[in-house]
Write a protein that binds this DNA or RNA. Structure first.
Lengths: 347, 347
DNA sequence: CTGAAAGCGCTAACAT
DNA sequence: ATGTTAGCGCTTTCAG
């Protein structure tokens, strides 16, 4: 008799040795059965399966990965601005749907746009031997974030492209999205459209502005005359900026906001000033109940479910050995018309 | 010279042995330093730290847990209805904030209210040796969900109390919340208030209804006359039910909805029928932009951040050895007045 | 088709 | 204060 005590086994979790002992086979045979490897006779297989069921045995994924040549842990890390941000949460869900089918579990973490957290969480996940990571980059250079010895660890960037290294990335077409907003408002008749944007150190915000301003320029609007307010990071700062712009001399007849919280601030400002039905508004990124607002809010919608699904697919492909050159996948936006963006300028 | 090849070390990740070799000490000394154990001279400590920094060494948490007596992996599992559901996502974030401080990583998974997924994900997390789990229970009996051999694994239930076993739980005071809605609408003058609720197999929905109906009874309203519509699981079914109720003979003068999606359906029905300012509405659970609706939506707010923080605290306490009897922690709701719930009945 | 022995990276239990 | 040996649960290698 070896160690597995049959009697008092309420405390210790069963191991392969327990199963092997109960089934009357060698431990390697159990391993083969649990991993569905070939080379086990049907009768042995059934004996092992029975014993495993009796003991309620569950393979220890992490212990196995220690010795396994592929070293896979069937685990990936997901680093988001915040797990409670709706856009991020939608990406998270889409990834989970794709990954859980493959038996891959996901570690999630929030970075709050803090570079120190980015580095700390990357290390934390690396220390837990993830097979790969999906990361919303923050630091100005990801080369320092990923340690040298893990350069070959599959990483897919989302929302923003990485700097300082090349890797797969899945991003929204922010510039084209901004341009769509500009063209739509122009088509409705607007010539003086203000831009209210997020922190200028965030790549996506810069892209949205660039696309927006460039498109206006192409349409013949003097880009120097476009009112621009940036570094608006929350509802209140956006509201204040919008009020200021709307109460200035020669105010714009339309607003384009680069992000949800900024859009909310603009909505509040417009309502407060009684301009909801007078000044047009297009927001970047869709949100729940946008159609229940008065007026409904026209938006440039992103597609987080597509981003998440594609990121998961690319990550798994890399983990499974795909070595094609890194590529950036671009997800288009969709203009959704709901009313606020179709208000014509008072002429 | 032992195995660690100094030259070509771009591919293999450094291990303790590499660090030990470089620092010229034994492997156990490295272990002591990395785990901040006492009994290492300051000078040795620094040598080790230097070598570890040079190699960019990172402790392998999972490998260590294999041999460690506590067997802790510094990892916990979180099972939610969906990571993309705002209420769940808020709980997730609060837990993460509490746990990341302690160096604990979290696996998150969505269950979609499917008992099979509950069991599958519990097993997946168990197989990755989590130190504990926070779980929104679904199956009618959690005894079958947690295998016998893991009965001593700390588990904290959230949102709903477990069945078939006793464990810590952190839940909203659903019954009192429902009662608050009833009393508020009664105080405003309503005597005929409809209840629109979620699936009756969900404990929280039943509690909200019970609290609501009982409170009305105590206030002298004939509970038999309360219009009740249940098993509304999405916006559209709720909208249809609300329209039906509102267009019936002798319609209610106020609505109480047990959940966000149902509230949204009610809002749509009221708007569609032009009754937004005529029929009162109180929703259970707060939501973004509720104050920007017309009228603002009065709600019984839950406090997911409190639930998450407390669940994390209880889980860590259990993991660290707390053995007091299991207890259910109840988080109170808050009535937030915004307009829709203060509409008086047309008399 | 099956199993014994070695060892993954680490910590425990003992040396020294 | 430091190092050595064994072994966590598993997979690999290699011998039957």
């Amino acid at each position: 008799m070896s160690k597995p005590s049959v009697g008092g086994g309420a405390k210790t979790r069963p191991t392969m040795r327990h199963v092997a002992a109960l089934a009357g086979v060698g431990i390697k045979t159990v391993s083969r059965v649990m991993n569905e490897e070939p080379g086990v006779s049907e009768s042995t297989r059934e004996k092992v399966l029975l014993a495993s069921k009796q003991l309620n045995y569950e393979l220890d994924v992490t212990a196995g990965s220690l010795r396994r040549s592929s070293r896979r842990t069937q685990t990936v890390g997901l680093l988001l601005p915040s797990v409670s941000n709706p856009f991020s949460a939608e990406i998270h869900r889409a990834m989970e749907d794709a990954l859980s089918l493959k038996g891959v579990a996901v570690f999630a973490a929030s970075l709050d746009d803090e570079p120190e957290r980015e580095e700390a969480m990357v290390r934390a996940f690396l220390g837990r031997r993830v097979d790969g990571m999906v990361l919303t980059p923050i630091a100005s250079n990801q080369a320092h974030v990923i340690p040298e010895h893990s350069r070959d660890l599959p990483v897919v960037f989302i929302d923003r492209e990485p700097a300082g290294l090349t890797a797969d990335a899945v991003v929204t077409d922010n510039a084209v999205g901004g341009a769509k907003a500009a063209r739509h408002l122009f088509d409705v008749g607007h010539r003086k459209i203000a831009y209210l944007g997020d922190r200028t150190d965030i790549q996506t915000a810069r892209e949205r502005r660039r696309g927006f301003i460039d498109a206006l320029g192409e349409l013949g609007v003097s880009t120097a005359s476009v009112p621009v307010r940036e570094n608006l990071h929350d509802v209140e700062s956006a509201r204040l900026a919008a009020v200021e712009i709307l109460t200035s001399d020669d105010p714009p007849t339309a607003l384009f906001s680069s992000q949800n919280l900024v859009t909310f601030g603009c909505m509040r400002a417009l309502r407060e000033l009684g301009l909801s039905h007078t000044v047009a508004l297009v927001g970047f990124d869709d949100f729940t109940l946008s159609d229940m607002m008065d007026p409904g809010v026209t938006v440039i919608a992103q597609h987080p479910e597509k981003i998440g699904a594609l990121a998961a697919e690319r990550l798994m492909a890399r983990i499974e050995g795909d070595i094609q050159p890194p590529k950036t996948y671009i997800i288009e936006t969709t203009l959704i018309i709901r009313g606020s963006g179709e208000i014509r300028p008072a002429s």
